[in-house]
Write a protein that binds this DNA or RNA. Structure first.
Lengths: 145, 145
DNA sequence: TAAATCTCTATTGATTTGATAGAGATTATG
DNA sequence: CATAATCTCTATCAAATCAATAGAGATTTA
């Protein structure tokens, strides 16, 4: 399961993706639109900012914009920043590989093998799914009435 | 990420799968072989027993056996029992669907759509991966020397 | 009857999660 | 320049979850 925080992050990013690129959106507005507690959202946006996914403008009329084109921001990246690796076990992670403390023989671990398959399938989907894909999906699902 | 408990459960089940079907294995032995704290393992096995994955024999010389043929016990089932649904969000789960509390429009939720794709891919792998598959993998990886 | 085992429930300490708070730093504007 | 509006940073907190331990009970064999 994703954390609530990661779901908030995805919603906030999707909101930003739907806005004109260079009109900073304020945390209060994003929080309202995405249904996220404002102070909690601020922490989330700071994390995303530190990794370059959003760009911030300080001071009056400041706010947040996407740091890159929506087509270059993948679900996978957002989730990894907030929740950590996609894999079901550290030993099956590519971005944050770590040997299991209590693993006796990784080479023959049949559990690990299955978990790597899952991690690859998950990454394949989430690394190919960008914010612009999501916007397109949304338009498709709810045709302009 | 799977919980430690789920990893323990997979290891314990794999250990049982490698043993003759009708020789009850004792928790102390399984715990030792699978590297799981004994009392913690007992809880895990009880959960698995309640769902029919293992069968127990009480009293002296008692112990645990698989409740079904290893080929009919899937990783997915073990993980679901211990950790709950495979999906990344309740709204993307098939076995434990629940609407997101704060979801405004599920029909057009582009996040949900991606998460459903992930859940389907994950389930496809883990529902087709049985304990006997895992034993076969292990033999393949470590040919009888 | 005693020993070996599974069964059940409670408890505990550590960590994580989700959220709130408030004091800075920065900028636009009147 | 003063002020209001904003992002920035760190601390704190309560509740939930996780990982593990404990121990009394029930069951079976020898």
């Amino acid at each position: 399961m994703l954390s609530q925080k990661a779901r908030y992050a995805l919603r906030a990013m999707l909101h930003l993706a739907a806005k004109p690129k260079d009109e900073p959106q304020q945390t209060a507005d994003i929080a309202d639109a995405a249904g996220v507690p404002r102070k909690f959202l601020e922490q989330i946006l700071l994390d995303l900012k530190r990794r370059g996914l959003v760009y911030s403008v300080r001071g009056r009329n400041g706010g947040y914009q996407l740091g890159r084109d929506p087509k270059d921001i993948e679900f996978a990246e957002i989730i990894r920043i907030i929740d950590g690796p996609l894999a079901l076990s550290p030993c099956a992670s590519r971005t944050a590989y770590r040997r299991c403390d209590d693993c006796t023989d990784e080479a023959t671990c049949a559990i690990r093998k299955a978990l790597i398959d899952v991690r690859n399938a998950t990454a394949k989907i989430l690394e190919r799914h960008s914010l612009s894909d999501a916007l397109a999906d949304r338009r498709k699902m709810k045709p302009a009435a």
